[in-house]
Nucleic acid binder design. Structure first.
Lengths: 251, 251
DNA sequence: AAAAGGCATTGATTCAGATCAATTCAGCCC
DNA sequence: GGGCTGAATTGATCTGAATCAATGCCTTTT
């Protein structure tokens, strides 16, 4: 990983702030630089000590910055951009287990190996710090630990939903669920859903093939459920019917 | 839920102990009764206050004690027995998202609704306490919060493995993975794997049908990978080959 | 011991989605 | 604009697991 820069420590904030999901601007916990969004404010005397070991890293699109099975030495907080998390089988079959965006933490694990890989979708900025440091941070800031627990809980709920999808839903139900999930994730409240990922990523996330994803989207178009826009965008036309489909209410 | 009894508060321990995975005998955090296994010791002055609202509940086999979508009012710690966690679709399709045994916590959620249901497999004893109380406990005992985070992290890893299984593995690979997982879970180090759950549970856990599970086990028997014993037990005969199969190395 | 009920196994057939195989489309770079 | 390249769509065919359908096999009851 050659494309990393040291933290800009000149911009010292008065208060320590966690990058997070609540979408307020603020300063990164680990390096003190201004982040796109933060969620949690921590009163702080020890900011100088905290900023000591922080490193900001820039990751280019397509780059795998966490290798599945590698030694889990670092902890990451995404300050901008989005990444895909995945697991793979020896013969190349791949399962994307989730997407992570601004504010998410990566590398939370009890094991000493990363259980999944992580690859940048677009250009990603993240703060990286060592595991011993993370432990120390959690000792010093209980709110951080609480926040990690909340994030883990949410991810667990998402994972359970995904297990239901992968184990029991049909291709149509999977794609419908995916579109609605993407809509919820999008910052714009509109029904124009951005799909920045490739069909291949969608397929690997939904446990399908690219052909089935493509066919299913085409079917949704002819059924007037969605309209497929330019530039990786899908507009939801019949929200009700799509929700019914995603919930598995009727075939 | 009529089959619950109040906590036996007469057995006051000197120290507060968390029921957990490390398999040492000790006292339950919430009610102070002796539990089959505990993992974490917490020095304690406030034991009387802590035991105040604790309730021990006995759950009979087959009983659903957490209803998916119901108001998430309580938090549970299993002190003995094993339960299955599941999600369901309106038409009855079901996905078992995991099994929980002695020491596991249930009900961890940011949302105010349970994201999954929980049903007792055998007779289950558990300690139940309210969410506000749980919050208070976490405030008072940071080690509890740390333990919950560790448990959530482990579950997240397990969930990611299961997503790979459900999204990308074949029926044979799924059953092989399941047998090895059960072997790891079992307390006996032997290669005799106990399968207390029904074929239907296995199928709903692996995203298959009971017929496919049955056929796959029969195939494994004829291939001399396993020997099917009496009373819901399977003996692993060819460990190496089973591991290769589970890892998805060769078809 | 016979009857009954609930799993589990095995067989026959179907089908949703995978695989194999062309096109078609959208950027991009001269 | 005219190739060039990788992604997306569409079509034809195949197949692994689901579905439909009998038995078989324990456990409980009488």
């Amino acid at each position: 990983m050659s494309d990393q820069t040291t933290c800009r420590r000149d911009a010292r904030p008065r208060r320590l702030i966690l990058a997070g999901a609540h979408r307020q601007p603020g300063y990164c916990l680990t390096c003190g630089i201004r982040a796109q969004s933060v969620c949690s404010v921590i009163d702080d005397d020890d900011i100088a000590r905290l900023a000591e070991t922080a490193v900001e890293t820039l990751v280019l699109p397509g780059r795998t910055f966490i290798e599945e099975g590698a030694a889990a030495t670092d902890f990451y907080n995404i300050t901008s951009g989005s990444v895909k998390l995945f697991k793979a089988l020896p013969d190349g079959r791949r399962q994307i287990t989730g997407f992570a965006t601004t504010g998410h933490f990566l590398g939370l694990a009890v094991s000493d190996q990363y259980a999944f890989g992580a690859e940048a979708i677009d250009t990603v900025r993240l703060c990286r710090f060592s595991r011993p440091r993370m432990r120390q941070l959690m000792d010093d800031f209980p709110r951080l630990e609480r926040r990690l627990l909340a994030e883990a809980s949410n991810e667990l709920v998402a994972a359970q939903n995904q297990m239901l999808l992968l184990g029991r839903k049909t291709a149509r139900e999977r794609v419908a669920s995916f579109l609605l999930e993407r809509m919820r994730e999008a910052q714009d409240p509109a029904e124009d859903v951005p799909l920045p990922m490739t069909r291949s990523d969608m397929a690997d996330y939904l446990g399908l093939t690219i052909e089935t994803v493509s066919r299913t989207l085409s079917w949704m178009r002819t059924e007037r459920l969605v309209a497929i826009g330019k530039g990786h965008t899908v507009r939801i036309v019949a929200m009700e019917r799509l929700q019914t489909l995603a919930a598995g209410d009727a075939a």
